[in-house]
Each structure stands twice: as structure tokens, then as C-alpha cells.
């Protein structure tokens, strides 16, 4: 029977168990570890809020991370946004044509992109690109004792490493979402003109006429939460890596999986809340 499993030893107490006992305990341990993980993540999130308001404020590191997370992701988000708008328009045209509603194509594309597709796709791309990179970087820092080195220098590593990255994700992912929306609408314009002839000004007139405050505002708010989820989960997985070099890969992988899943869960909740106000 394993009484306690110390994180530092990665469950070395299992050494005293027979192979059979380890297998028998595996399901129970996984079940337990799932809830332990949720608890630890909540505690990590609370610590983030506590540390975020406490000085010293690492403004330069926040700017550096914003550059790495935001500016370096513009290209990928832009290309994806354009393709997203283009494909959505091409795919939707035949269905609308059946009802003779092709004139509604710009409005439909605009609402789809701004309300849902833009924020979610941007966040999922960032979960893959940024979440995995944060998870791997922090795990590698943990494994090579760089985090301990900060601690022994009397510097709070949580403040320097975690707070700056989470805040950068929280502010950059909404900006990337706005950028993806804009490029997605341009993609939509290209899509409309593949089999039609709509001027740039008419297309965007229809786009802006179809959008109102309640399309933009909730999607921006939820992209803040998406950003925070990507940052916190990436940092949590990396900061708590205790399994040597193998753990670096695991941290990156589980950061992407968990962040992507949490994006869809947040989206589901956000849609319910938004529909309550509309």
C-alpha cells in the first residue's frame, strides 16, 4: 500500500511494491492523480493571481514575452485566418445559393468569423504553438535546475517566469484574435470574388452592417480567457515537470492537449452566458 507519493521522487515509493501491485494500483492512482492535478492547477492559478499583484513587476520580461508570444505568432495566425475565411466562404456559397441568399454571404462569413471561428481557431493555434513552447521551455528550465538557480539567488521564479508569460498570453491572444478576424474577413472577400464580383467597399459595408457590439465584445472577452488558459496550463505543466528529459516532451504534449480542451470548455460556457444576455 502506498501511503504517500512524493513528487520529488516521482513515486519512487512504488519500489517496495511488486509488479502486480503496481498494475493493480495504476487505475486507482490515475483516478487520484486526475483530481490531484485539477486541485494543483487551481492552486497554481490562485498563486498566479496572488503573485501578479505583488511587486516586483517584471515589465521588461513581460514585453519580451509579449513579443515572443504575440509578434512571432502573427504570421501563422494571419495565414490560418486567411485560409479560414476563404474556405468558409467557398463552402457556404452553394448552400446559400440553394435558398437564393448569396447576397447574405458577407454577413454570414463576418458573424461566423467574429463570433466563433476567429477566437477559437486563434486560441487553438496558440495552444499548439505557444502552450507547447511554454510547457517545454519551463520543463527544460526545471530539469536543468534553472528555476532552482533563480530561487537560490533570492529571486521569485514564479513572478519572473510564470506571471510574465501568463499575462503576455492573456493580452496577446485577444490581439491575435482581432488580427485573425481581420485577415479572415479579407479571405472571405477573396472567396466571394472567386465566383462572383463584389467590390471591396460593398463587401465590407455588408460585413460591418451585419456586426454589432454584442458580436465583438463577448468574443474579445472570451479570447482573454482563452489566452489565460493557454498561459496558465503551459506554465503549470512546465513548472511542475519532475520527470527528467522525458518529462519535457510530456509537459509540452499535455500542455497542448489540456489547453485545447479547456478552450472548448470555456467556449461552451461563454456561449451559454452570451446567449443569456442576447
Amino acid at each position: 500500500m502506498v501511503d504517500t507519493v512524493d513528487k520529488q521522487t516521482n513515486g519512487k515509493s512504488k519500489e517496495v511494491l511488486t509488479d502486480c501491485e503496481v498494475i493493480n494500483n495504476r487505475d486507482g492512482y490515475s483516478f487520484h492523480s486526475f483530481f490531484a492535478d485539477i486541485g494543483a492547477l487551481s492552486s497554481f492559478t490562485l498563486r498566479f493571481f496572488r503573485e501578479a499583484i505583488r511587486p516586483p513587476y517584471e515589465f521588461n520580461e513581460f514585453l519580451r514575452q509579449s513579443y515572443l508570444i504575440g509578434v512571432k505568432s502573427f504570421g501563422l495566425v494571419g495565414i490560418t485566418g486567411f485560409i479560414m475565411g476563404l474556405v468558409l466562404t467557398i463552402q457556404s456559397r452553394p448552400t446559400l445559393a440553394v435558398f437564393g441568399a448569396e447576397a447574405w454571404l458577407p454577413a454570414m462569413v463576418a458573424i461566423s468569423i467574429v463570433r466563433e471561428i476567429g477566437p477559437v481557431i486563434t486560441a487553438v493555434i496558440c495552444a499548439g504553438k505557444v502552450g507547447s513552447s511554454i510547457g517545454a521551455e519551463l520543463a527544460s528550465m526545471k530539469v536543468t535546475e534553472q528555476i532552482d538557480a533563480m530561487e537560490v539567488s533570492g529571486i521569485n521564479p514564479f513572478n519572473y517566469i510564470v506571471v510574465t508569460r501568463v499575462l503576455a498570453c492573456t493580452f496577446m491572444i485577444p490581439l491575435l484574435t482581432v488580427f485573425a478576424d481581420a485577415i479572415g474577413l479579407l479571405g472571405g472577400f477573396a472567396g466571394v470574388n472567386i465566383k462572383g464580383d463584389t467590390s471591396f467597399s460593398l463587401y465590407f459595408l455588408q460585413v460591418f452592417n451585419s456586426l454589432d457590439f454584442m458580436d465583438l465584445f463577448p468574443s474579445l472577452i472570451k479570447s482573454f480567457f482563452f489566452g489565460q488558459a493557454v498561459g496558465i496550463i503551459g506554465c503549470y505543466k512546465g513548472y511542475n515537470c519532475n520527470e527528467g528529459t522525458e518529462g519535457v516532451g510530456k509537459a509540452a504534449n499535455s500542455a497542448v492537449v489540456m489547453a485545447s480542451l479547456s478552450i472548448f470548455i470555456i467556449d461552451m460556457v461563454a456561449v451559454q452566458i452570451t446567449s443569456f444576455f442576447m
Binding site: 528550465m141 534553472q146 532552482d148 538557480a149 537560490v152 539567488s153 533570492g154 529571486i155 521569485n156
Partner: peptide, 29 residues
Amino acid sequence: NDMRKSIGFLFQSAALYDSMTVGENLEFP
């Protein structure tokens, strides 16, 4: 944290910060 500043710790791997230059590493503490 104040006490830790009175104690130097050289890690087995040296634990240099990969994203910083040598100068920045030294200035970090």
C-alpha cells in the same frame, strides 16, 4: 530570500539561463 543571497550555490549542471547571454546571466542575481 535575503538569507539565500548570503549563500552561493553552484549546481552540478551550472544551471545557466539558456535564453540569456553570459553577461545577462551574471547580472541576473
